[in-house]
Write a protein that binds this DNA or RNA. Structure first.
Lengths: 229, 229
DNA sequence: CTGTGTGAAGGCTTTCACAGCC
DNA sequence: GGCTGTGAAAGCCTTCACACAG
């Protein structure tokens, strides 16, 4: 598995470069660190609005809900950004994190499945603020799915594959019923999608090069209910 | 921190009992195992519908997207459920997992913040199927928030605390704007809520006895965008 | 003296290897 | 022979302790 993973896609080459060339972009940053970088970035954004110039690891970590050592360790994965005795430059650190996360440019995203949850997400708009644009939505039934207040075009599923190819879409949000999730995921991957944010209550089986993040509301609730007495 | 955690609420007493009495219910099952138990349960449900009597760890694990050794290890945390050379009894295993997750009884849940995302979740209904009932929703502005097709009553925030106390609500879904999330969380906790499913893009600072699961759409997308080249 | 950077230690989770039962 | 149960090993992530820079 470790060996296989290395050879999956161009992983092996990248690992090689990483070790000898020390990149400032992508490498073997732990998965959990990546998540936290997004959180740090948010806090930094807020700090910037308040006009703060610098921030200590202690302050930033507390605001992000982690320990300060954790924050410092997280940052060392891609360089040294602080000034000892002073802290971090808010602006510079935010820029560095944004670069590492690969969010410098707007990523086009599509949404598949314009049901209750799907249309809510379309309206929700919390994505654009963070550098994503949902460029289109797809559904098998676009007749009954026509909320007037949504600006994103809702197209028929049959146009999905061509759209992905033409626009080079790599990110998809999947909000279809669980029963068709796997099949739709297969189509997405065949068309060139590389990462899927899956809201469908189903386990997606995908090639190793594809990344899937699952958001399952029922499972989150079940998990919580275990911890309440 | 470890010592403090032990004394938080009745943790110390429970730890003591666990060590010497060996409970079949709740104990130190790893957090990640709890998540997977929910997934196993789903797969078992589907198997039951197809009429299958038994299932091997290999088959169940594959369907759940994990390795078979992982599945078997997960199950040993709360007993022995298989028959060597044969596999697991579908019915019995499902019942055992449901028991461990503490989902024997319907958990009343409230939703706070009836905006786009909140109302979508109310309509979504994916919870009820899994043993949860959203008994009420709350919002600071119930005038403009009156979708006619939602059966769950939407009440004014001022009634929230009393409602939680009277009904003994322990689980809450938080779909308010990030700017007020901490304040609303404080109210929920003061009223007796023990676990929060937080959709607000904010880091909640809560006492150690409170459990928070965060679902942050923007962060999930950012995370994916790191992995696409 | 304040606050970052980091090797080493510790803790948690997954995987392995194989003993044991049907 | 087939398949589960599990101690031990490996891997990953977090925390500690402290060197070191401003």
């Amino acid at each position: 598995m470790p060996v296989l993973a290395l050879f999956g896609s161009y992983g092996y080459l990248r690992a090689f470069l990483v070790r000898f060339h020390k990149p400032m972009h992508k490498s073997d940053i732990p998965r959990k660190t990546i998540y936290r970088l997004s959180i740090y970035n948010r806090v930094l954004q807020r700090l910037r609005e308040t006009g703060a110039q610098t921030v200590s690891s202690e302050a930033l970590a507390t605001a992000a809900g982690v320990k300060s050592t954790q924050l410092r360790k997280d940052l060392t994965y891609f360089g040294q950004w602080g000034t000892r005795g002073l802290g971090y430059n808010v602006e510079a650190l935010a820029k560095a994190i944004t670069g590492v996360l690969g969010m410098a440019k707007l990523q086009p995203v599509i949404l598949v499945g314009a049901g209750q949850l799907g249309t809510a997400l379309l309206r929700y708009g919390g994505f654009a603020k963070e550098g994503f644009e949902v460029v289109a939505a797809f559904d098998a039934d676009i007749e009954t799915r026509r909320p007037r207040d949504i600006k994103v075009p809702i197209l028929h599923s049959s146009k999905m594959t061509d759209f992905i190819r033409e626009r080079g879409v790599k990110l998809a949000i999947l909000t279809v019923p669980g029963s068709v999730a796997q099949q739709v995921a297969n189509e997405l991957i065949a068309a060139g999608v590389q990462a899927i944010l899956n809201f469908a209550p189903a386990v997606l089986h995908v090639p190793e090069r594809i990344v899937v993040n699952n958001v399952d509301l029922a499972i989150e609730l079940e998990n919580l209910s275990y911890f309440v007495k």
